[in-house]
Nucleic acid binder design. Structure first.
Lengths: 210, 210
DNA sequence: TATTTTCCGTTGCAAAAGCAACACATTATG
DNA sequence: CATAATGTGTTGCTTTTGCAACGGAAAATA
């Protein structure tokens, strides 16, 4: 593992050097990919926003992950054990690089720089994913909608180094991410405002508690 | 990555070959370790059972992960981003191997076989952890206690290749794992029995639906 | 710019989940 | 083996959450 690995530089460089990558452009609401058992796909979001969503038998939608610029996704990061369908949906127009691999940890036969760098750094990239997943589990184990909202806001606050930040979701999608009913979440958000915990200006949240 | 890697053989072999490992024995309810920022610890449970638990500010306990024989845990698999304390508690008497590393992906200076094998296979071990985490997220995103119970039972059923299986938890702990109130869970479990979905004989669950 | 679609904000009511308390069973422990 | 500690099963009551529905705002689209 190379600790000086810079994901952004890496991503901006490799598309020149590698022939096996496919670049595609999607418009809003298009399905970018579905997760399929035993296919080995790695995807990189070059720009735009997309969500990994799951629909269950009751018709509930869950946003499993939210992806923005330079996010990595695909079956590498998700061994499929569920029967429910997993889709990646474009939330805005976006550009995605696709790469089907044989053995993700080995560089390809053509020996290009991209695959070498990728296989060297993949363990670290997977560890980053582990961190995300653990944070998500902590959110989901919170017992009340209020704690889920506050927990998520606190996470965004930390990530933005500020008590004020833009929500990356519509409120409708936020409910599907926190796995709660939208109207119940709206009610709770209102109470949080009334109780002086947060303010909301447009799509921006301001935390009022230390 | 070596696809023929056998975790069990690996674990049973290396303690002879590596000097940097520490073996310790714990009795029930002892704290095996706490997760500490910027320490690099990898632990292997040689026998017994242990849980990774988190206590939140409201006094709720969450069982984050349940470990049995040959489980791997420690900071490698959990970059700490939370303020809550994370403890590993022994659920029975158990034996644990500890290993503090500098760079987990590199073999150590003494060049022993263990570290070489470990660094070669760690990516795959981390991917296994990713799979576990994704399954856990799927459980936690289920909207009702009933669906959480059925989802968990279905998972155990798949894992045991049988519609009948032992619960690895006490019911009290199961509630803390599913992140629901114990008495509410008991009520729901009773309803599941009344509705003919499951039977419970001692600590064994029998699924009655196809 | 007119029109359609999506999202926001809200509410009444129903259902689910949480809380607290208790008796009894089972399991550890001196 | 007696006693303490922990786990199970249950219930009444309260609080939270979900569901369904609706009007208006905002955003997308023709």
């Amino acid at each position: 593992m190379n600790n000086n690995f810079n994901l952004e530089n890496f991503i901006s460089d490799f598309s020149k050097s590698c022939q096996k990558m496919q670049k595609k452009v999607f418009s809003k609401n298009e399905v970018v990919t579905t997760y399929i058992k035993n296919r080995n796909q790695l995807c990189i979001l070059l720009n735009g926003h997309a969500d990994l969503v799951r629909y269950d038998l009751n018709g509930n939608r869950t946003i499993v992950e939210h992806f923005s610029k330079n996010a990595l996704f695909g079956e590498v990061f998700y061994t499929i054990t569920t029967n429910n369908e997993l889709l990646v949906e474009a939330k805005s127009s976006c550009t995605v690089l696709f790469y089907i691999y044989d053995d993700i940890f080995k560089k390809c036969k053509s020996n290009c720089k991209f695959h070498q760098t990728l296989s060297e750094n993949l363990p670290q990239l997977i560890l980053n994913k582990v961190t995300d997943l653990n944070m998500r589990i902590e959110l989901l184990t919170k017992r009340s909608t209020r704690d889920k909202l506050l927990g998520y806001f606190s996470l965004l606050s930390t990530r933005n180094l500020s008590t004020s930040f833009e929500l990356p979701f519509s409120l409708t999608d936020l409910a599907d991410y926190l796995s709660v009913d939208r109207s119940a979440m709206m009610r709770e958000l209102k109470l949080l405002k009334e109780d002086g915990f947060v303010e909301k200006v447009g799509n921006r949240i301001i935390l009022l508690y230390k």
